[in-house]
């Protein structure tokens, strides 16, 4: 892993990377998309529905950035509004009702920072997902495929297993945001990226993720086949875990405890 942290950030943002829908279409069969949060609107930045993974029904949810300029505008560049998170939660509750595992693909610079987003409770929407996902009684696997931007990414990542693509990043704040707040200097984004420990290797050594997915042949059939196999194997294991929910609690409960000094 020779690239610097900031080079990883650029790779994670690369417009040519596969997006959420590419993963859904290539890993699963018979995807049926469902729309709307039943409260306000349908958010095109989050796509969700049901599909088959090796024949078994699963619920899939993905943050979608789009490929073309037109798509990217339509998808709000993958920055979800509160209704996107509420749609995701609705589909997760539906999955729980019908005993389907949930698989989330995450790729966002962050939850959208807009007037309407605030008026409709962006913070409340994320908070509710964090709370409700912690006790879903079906297996949840979340994969960070590009950018994992703060609370907007975490709102789909309170999962039993969290995986990251080799060049995905996961961070509490963008390196640019960090540099401008701490050092009032955008040029220090590289230092910030390094200091924030946002690469897949960093996340794994901090105990935040379980697995790093290789990007060998990314976007090709072999790449998606590999992820399909890993998902199938992991779900097999999770579906037989009688302590699924309490293990998920402990998973998050223990993160960061080593970073606290007790006097």
């Amino acid at each position: 892993m020779s690239e610097s942290a900031y080079e990883r950030v650029k790779l994670a943002r690369d417009k040519d990377r596969p997006t959420g829908l590419d993963y859904i279409r290539n890993i699963f069969k018979g995807f049926i998309e469902f729309h709307g949060d039943r409260r306000y609107a349908d958010d095109p930045a989050i796509v969700g529905g049901i599909a088959r993974l090796n024949g078994s029904p699963v619920t899939v949810i993905a943050i979608e950035k789009g490929h073309t300029a037109k798509e990217r505008t339509y998808r709000n560049f993958g920055a979800p509004n509160p209704e996107g998170y509420r749609k995701a939660l609705r589909l997760m509750k539906q999955a729980e009702k019908f005993g389907r595992p949930i698989i989330c693909f995450i790729d966002t610079s962050g939850a959208f920072c807009g007037i309407g987003a605030e008026e409709r409770g962006q913070g409340q929407a994320i908070a509710e997902n964090l709370m409700e996902m912690s006790t879903l009684c079906v297996p949840v696997i979340s994969i960070l495929i590009g950018e994992g931007g703060s609370g907007g990414a975490l709102a789909l990542a309170v999962a039993d297993r969290v995986w990251m693509l080799q060049n995905a990043v996961y961070s509490v704040i963008s390196p640019e945001g960090c540099a401008s707040i701490l050092w009032k200097d955008l040029a220090k984004a590289e230092t910030a990226a390094q200091s924030l420990k946002l690469t897949a290797e960093d996340a794994k050594s901090l105990g935040v993720i379980e697995r790093i997915l290789s990007e060998k042949e990314i976007g090709k059939k072999e790449f998606y086949d590999r992820i399909r196999t890993l998902l199938t194997e992991e779900l097999e294991e999770l579906e037989h875990d009688p302590d699924l929910v309490s293990n998920r609690y402990d998973r998050f409960r223990n993160i960061g405890t080593g970073a606290v000094i007790k006097e």
């Binding site: 703060s150 609370g151 509490v172």
Partner: peptide
């Protein structure tokens, strides 16, 4: 505290 801070949101919410 980077990602460790972010994870506190999930941890407190679960509690």
């Amino acid at each position: 505290e980077g990602l460790l801070s972010l994870m506190q949101m999930a941890k407190t919410s679960a509690a």
